[in-house]
Structure formats: structure tokens, C-alpha cells
Design a binder for these strands. Sequence first.
DNA 1: TTTTTCAGATACTATCGGTATCTGAGTACG
DNA 2: CGTACTCAGATACCGATAGTATCTGAAAAA
Lengths: 202, 202
Amino acid sequence: MAVTSTRVTRAERQAQTRERLIEVAREMFLSDGYAATSLDKVAVRAGFSKGAVYSNFAGKEQLCMAVLDSIHEEQIEGVVAAFSQDTDLDGRIEAFAAWAREGLGQPRWTALEVEFGAIARQSPYVATELVKRHREIRAAIAELVRQVTAEAGLGDTVDADQAATTLLSLGIGLGTLRSLDNTIDVGVFADTMRALLKSSKL
Amino acid sequence: MAVTSTRVTRAERQAQTRERLIEVAREMFLSDGYAATSLDKVAVRAGFSKGAVYSNFAGKEQLCMAVLDSIHEEQIEGVVAAFSQDTDLDGRIEAFAAWAREGLGQPRWTALEVEFGAIARQSPYVATELVKRHREIRAAIAELVRQVTAEAGLGDTVDADQAATTLLSLGIGLGTLRSLDNTIDVGVFADTMRALLKSSKL
DNA sequence: TTTTTCAGATACTATCGGTATCTGAGTACG
DNA sequence: CGTACTCAGATACCGATAGTATCTGAAAAA
């Protein structure tokens, strides 16, 4: 029956709207930055009005947090994929470095991450949510480091938590510099990683 | 004569106004961030109107650049002081680490630096000026590394430029994370530095 | 003393995040 | 069915803020 064309329930439609808004916002936040992206432009480019944004998100901050979550998801997939292809330590480091080279380059999510982080000083919501996510990411990196060093027979010569902090910081710093100045040599990331993983206990 | 009280020439008065504006803007930018600091509030808190700001700076970006310059000046003084007190390599590293621990802590200039950096995508002025300054800073760090490693008899086992990029990135990354989450262990900075300087050529 | 200049004040505009209100299609219920 | 209700999204508005245009009065030049 033709009536079946109206299969989409209200909740489904809203979910679609939400996803579409996140998708468009992600593009615009990444290319123009958080401050330079207006909610009105996002809504219009997604084919809606600003009302749609506010009926799906509490505000600009929450929209951006949803965007960051979608980015983090892909990011984690990338890291895991990079680490789980080779059994050799050097091979894994190289795979990770290659992934980082790409990620630290064009899309510059670090720039967004870090610009958004500045808002935390004014917004307890952003502060707590961002800290929560950063800790999760750090823990995940630490776990990967533990796994990799264990398999490579390095035992506990490396403090995984410290290594995770260093790697995350280095990634953020390099990405930030790189988004301003693409002559920055991202190769130091892999080098530092090697130095960290192979040096004796820090 | 009492008339001498009007010694201040117009240029002098303007210079005073400019300095006062930079001073107040620095406080506010550092404590509230770039976006959350309005030019009107800065002007009023400095005892002027917004007109004074626009008659001394081309806009908010240029005011912030002047603030960053004043911060960088102190920063460089701090680094040089930390490095030029001890002749022992480990002592110098420790002095630098102590300075970094302080700098990466409360005043969180990195957060401002990095939030402001996000504007570069929209403003060619900010982009070029910021890149220029970052390159200068990186060159200065590289020079210090060269000097220190040479005196420590490490010869050319360390690539000073790569080390400078790594240290600056790590500093920015750690400062950024730290400004969100003060449980971050800043000690990794000194550790990484030791690893970098003492490991054989990267 | 008169004229010119220009640092800083005042008034206004455009943009943007956020809020209040409205509307009409989808949903539940008799 | 058909009537009443709900709520996603639209519209209209508000306050704040960067930036602009214009004005003013005191210092500098003449």
C-alpha cells in the first residue's frame, strides 16, 4: 500500500535529523573551527532551521561534543587497526606512525579539539566531559602500550601510563603546530615513540 | 613650576595607554580565554573606552598578538635563565623541567596560544604572524639544545631541530591537557627530555 | 592666538548564541 | 475513524560583542 511510504516513525526521523546535523557540523567545525562556525549556517546547510539544532542538542557545546565523539570513534578504529596488523614491534610503530602522519595532517581534528578545550574554562559541562574523554583515550593508549611492549618481550621496562601521556601530548602538540605550519616534520612522532618504548624505564 | 606636571607628550600618553591595555588584556585573556574576553570589558577595566582599543590596535587579533609577544618575552627569559645556571647536563635539564612545571601549570598560556591559533584558519594575519613566532621559538630551542649537548660532550648525536620540534610540541600538548585536567603528570616532560638528549641519534 | 591633528569617546550596525512561542504532521486514544 | 494531544522543527525575538563611523577636546603646529 502507498501508505507504507510513511513508514518512518517520528523518532526515526529525528534520529536522521540528528545524524545529518552532526555530519554537517563535523565538516564545518573541522574546516572553519568552532568559533567561526555558526549554528545557523550548520542548520541551513543541513536543510533545516536553527530550531532543529536546539531541538536535538542543548546548545552549540553539546553539538560539538557529539561531533568530537564521532571523530574519536573513527580515531580509535584507526589506532587499533594500525596496531593489530603486524606482530613485530617496529612494524607496529611504523604502522602507527603512518596513521598519525595522516591524522596529524589535513583534517586537523586536534585544532578543533584544542579550540573547544578552551571553552572548558567557562563551561563546567565541557570541562567534565572533555576530561572524561581524555582520560579514556589515555587509558586506551596505555593499554595498547602495555600490550605491545609485553608481546615484544620488553616486560615492564616502560611505564605505560607515562608513555600514554607523552604520546597523547605529543600528538596534540604536533597536530596543533602542524595545523598552522605544514612544514612541521611529523616524523618526530614515530622517533619519539621508538625512543620511549625502547629506552629503559623512564 | 607646576606647569611641568604636563610634561607627558601625546605620544608618551598613547604608549602608556597601549601598555595598560596590553597588561589588562593579558590578565583577562589568560584567565578567561580569547573568545570569552570582550574588548569592551578590557577597555573599561583599563579605565578607557573601546575606542582606545581600536585607536591602538587594528582589532582584537592584533591586541592578542601583542599580549602573546609580551608573554613570549618572559617565557624566553625564563628558559635562558633555567639553562644558564648549571654546567651539568642533568642539572640543566632539572632546572628546565622545574621551570616547565611552573609554566605548564597555572598561568596556562598554552591554552591561550592554542585557542588563538584556531583563528589562523580564518585570518591570514594571525596565520603568518603565529607561524613566524613559532619558527623563531623552535629555532631558539634548537640552538639551546645544540649548545647544551655540545657542552655535555654529546657531539652531534642529537638532531637539535627534531628535538626542538618534539619539546615544543610536548610542551604545548602537556600544557593543553594540563589546563583541562590538573592531575596530568607534568614530570614526563623532563623524562622525555632526558630520553631525547641522551639517546643516540634519532 | 589661531588652526590643525589625532587619541580616545560615543553611537550605531551586523552577527551570533540562545530563548520563547508557534504550527502542523504524527501519535494515542475513545 | 475521528478527535485531542504531543513534540520536531520553524519563526521571531533578545542580549552580547566585534567592528565602523563620527565626534570632540586637548595637544601640537603655525
